[in-house]
């Protein structure tokens, strides 16, 4: 399968999905760690992809939504942003609301 189709399938596999360095249990980057932690705090299940374990996705994900950095958080298949945006939305309570609506 083409890598763009694989990415597309991944972001649509769960209402909430994160591409990160490492895993939510064992993150290997401070930004990924904080972002996954915010998602965990929201208390709903989310899908993830460890981009360090998938070089093809690592190389091509920035093109998918024209976003140059990791991590990347998708809700309902749409990019909401990286670490700073996710944390800012979390602090304002917007992330919880968005996730609750997406998962409900």
């Amino acid at each position: 399968m083409d890598v763009m189709d694989r990415i597309d399938e991944a972001v649509k596999s769960h209402p909430v999905f994160i591409f990160m360095k490492g895993t939510p249990q064992f993150p290997s980057c401070g930004f990924s760690s904080r972002t996954a932690e915010a998602l965990k705090q929201c208390g709903k299940e989310f899908g993830y992809c460890n981009v360090l374990a998938d070089p093809e996705i690592f190389e091509n994900l920035p093109r998918y939504a024209d976003w140059p950095t990791f991590p990347q958080v998708y809700i309902n298949g749409e990019l909401i942003g990286g670490c700073d945006i996710t944390l800012e939305m979390f602090e304002k309570g917007e992330l919880q609301k968005m996730i609750d609506e997406a998962v409900a």
Binding site: G22, S28, C29, G30, S33, L52, F58, C83
Partner: peptide
């Protein structure tokens, strides 16, 4: 900003 966790690239 968060501290590094040594994850390389």
């Amino acid at each position: 900003s968060p501290p590094c966790m040594g994850g390389g690239k």
